[in-house]
Design a protein around this nucleic acid. Structure first.
Lengths: 157, 157
DNA sequence: GGATAACTGGACATTCTTGTCTTCTTTACG
DNA sequence: CGTAAAGAAGACAAGAATGTCCAGTTATCC
């Protein structure tokens, strides 16, 4: 139900959030997130236009998050590439319905609202900070011992 | 975020729910729901295969709900034409993630689960029974007086 | 049983999403 | 300044979703 583009954008954003201060090239992001490089560059362009990431051309260039992972939400990433379209007026174009949606569309819109709310309430930071055995984008599970727990393990880079 | 097909299927299902005992032809449903007739017939075929509606060929034929509106949920209609695909395994195909989704995909899947839950908890009957000024698929708002409140107003047919 | 009404199924067209490729521009570094 | 690294932009290809059309099949009625 979420588009491929949304999935790709989130992978890229989460990856960049784990690389603060170190711009990543399209190739590097592609390798880490398993998103086709040629398409990823389009997605990153949209994220750039949407103010989610910053692009730097030339040698030593690449993409980096434009804002702190602590304030960047899933919703903002999604909105930059494939905005959730709330149902604001009757899809049948019935004038009588206008702003007041019928019970059917009210429920559909409520579901959209709930998704929006959920996405708006999670930051990239939270996703990276969550203790889990499945580190985002990481091939290897966290060691169960507490060796190397000092910081999140570096993965796929 | 919901496909056109889902929107169309729900319109048709709600309409049929308001016409229990009276099969409606593809043309009638199309006229009432403003769904292109040629495409609607495909949607209805899927609803038929999914056991949501019953098709009757020949003169006086048409489509009718296969089950009671009181037990038919939005989710069942949606599932028949365009199932919500929950995220069950890591979309990157990382073996280490397997069944345990990473925090990112866990949240995406939670959103899907929430939509599923919301859809599963609403029946077609509830949608028709809800007191509102915007009757589903109906061109005209309910009269504010209580004349003609005996049953839901007939609309678009 | 013939005519008519209606769904069925398949072929086709159109549009949108996803994906690829090539050329251009910008930047850093020697 | 020249070269190489990198993103930007546009054209194009493939596939899926949406939409249209038509011939075939089934059911009812006279």
């Amino acid at each position: 139900m979420f588009s491929q583009t949304v999935e790709y954008a989130l992978r890229a954003a989460v990856f960049l959030a784990s690389k603060i201060g170190a711009p990543q090239t399209n190739e590097q992001i592609s390798a880490a997130t398993l998103v086709p490089a040629a398409y990823l560059s389009k997605v990153l362009q949209n994220l750039s236009r949407g103010g989610i990431v910053q692009a730097q051309r030339g040698k030593h260039g690449g993409f980096s998050l434009a804002r702190s992972p602590r304030e960047l939400t899933i919703l903002e990433v999604v909105t930059a590439v494939d905005p959730i379209e709330r149902i604001r007026t009757c899809p049948l174009g019935l004038k009588a319905h206008g702003v007041r949606l019928c019970p059917l569309h009210k429920r559909l819109d409520n579901a959209l609202a709930e998704v929006e709310r959920a996405f708006a309430s999670t930051t990239l930071f939270e996703i990276l900070a969550e203790p889990t055995k499945s580190v985002p984008l990481c091939k290897f599970p966290l060691p169960t011992s507490d060796q190397g727990r000092a910081k999140a393990p570096a993965c796929r880079d």
